[in-house]
């Protein structure tokens, strides 16, 4: 259900940028913290994309690891589990530098002329 909501956001964003053309690829960066199950997201994307210009588009997922940086001592690390306290100095002032993404990087669309020819 989580993935279904996210898939709707992905399709809506892609359509908004598609200029009315057929979308063939949607590239998405997904941070580890977003707790997305890739297969589930692909499945939901396929459903939500039906009867839109995104129908049949390939969803390219790039998973982004969780990376953290301590604002007190500057230590940067990639935790194995959800542990957000600095392992070096114990500080709670930690910035997430990667792993929160749910970011559409790019889409690929069929050029209009080709699309017309294909239909014709």
């Amino acid at each position: 259900m989580h993935e279904l909501s996210l898939a709707s956001g992905v399709v809506d964003t892609a359509l908004r940028h598609s200029g009315g053309q057929t979308v063939t690829v949607v590239s998405l960066r997904v941070g580890h913290l977003r707790q997305v199950v890739p297969d589930s997201l692909r499945f939901c994307f396929e459903i939500v994309a039906r009867d839109t210009a995104c129908e049949g588009a390939e969803l390219r997922l790039t998973e982004v690891d969780l990376t953290l940086e301590c604002r007190d001592c500057g230590h940067g690390w990639s935790p194995r589990g959800p542990a957000f306290r600095c392992p070096d100095c114990g500080s709670a002032a930690v910035t997430v530098t990667g792993g929160e993404e749910l970011q559409i990087e790019y889409i690929e669309v069929e050029d209009k002329e080709d699309a017309c020819t294909a239909r014709g």
């Binding site: 996210l6 956001g9 992905v10 964003t13 892609a14 940028h17 598609s18 200029g19 053309q21 063939t24 690829v25 998405l28 749910l102 970011q103 559409i104 990087e105 790019y106 889409i107 690929e108 669309v109 069929e110 050029d111 002329e113 080709d114």
Partner: peptide
């Protein structure tokens, strides 16, 4: 022919 449209936007 495909055109790549760069977006970089949160979904």
């Amino acid at each position: 022919h495909r055109t790549r449209v760069r977006i970089v936007e949160d979904a």
